[in-house]
Amino acid sequence: MWEVEIRGMASAHALLAGSVLVGSLVPALSVENFSVYGTHLVWLYSVCGCVAIVNITVFWLLGISPPTKKHTLSYKLSRLIRSCVYFLLSCLFFHTVVVLYGASLLESALETFSLAVLLSTLTTLRCLCMLGPNVQAWIRVFSRDGAMSVWDTSLQITTGCSVVGAWLGAFPIPLDWDRPWQVWPVSCSLGATGGFLTGLLAAPIWIRWHRKQLTYKLK
């Protein structure tokens, strides 16, 4: 049972990691003069798009999200709309947090918002896919000892890693090296992506390592 779930999760994570890679490679073929630093926003949105698509296909179609009680179209539609609103709100939330951390308010607002979109894609979108637009479930998963399945634990780990990655990515900004990756928000978005990939890699390993200690309450 453990092995199966972990293997399934590992393959899903491999798909997600692959999507990041694809997201970086596709524009290199289509866009002229593409580079991660130079045309950073192109890279950022292409990664966002790829991760979003893979996320939605993997988690929605494979049916990991909790089974919905009603199957009416209107209910599904309302869920979809609510998810979109939540996503937008989370973008705004991240934007606010980044501004509070010292990003300039008006100048380079687009870059800041793009970073917020990336962070939302890496964190909120997964929550939406796996838990649905259900605040109570989110609070449960992200409170101490709240995980109820392997997927919850992996969600905790990847989300934490992405945010910490972006946090760490801010450190090189004050250094006076004048490198292209120190330009706002390159280091932060790279940090977030790196953290996300680390989380994807770490989650199955960590869960496998701790499978004796992990006991999930039954739903």
Partner: peptide, 22 residues
């Protein structure tokens, strides 16, 4: 240990303080 971080030490503190508040 880094001269840039000494010059920009206020950034370190603001950053830590924000994280603390969160």
């Amino acid at each position: 240990a880094s001269s840039s971080f000494v010059e920009e030490e206020h950034q370190t503190w603001y950053f830590l303080l924000n994280t603390l508040c969160l």
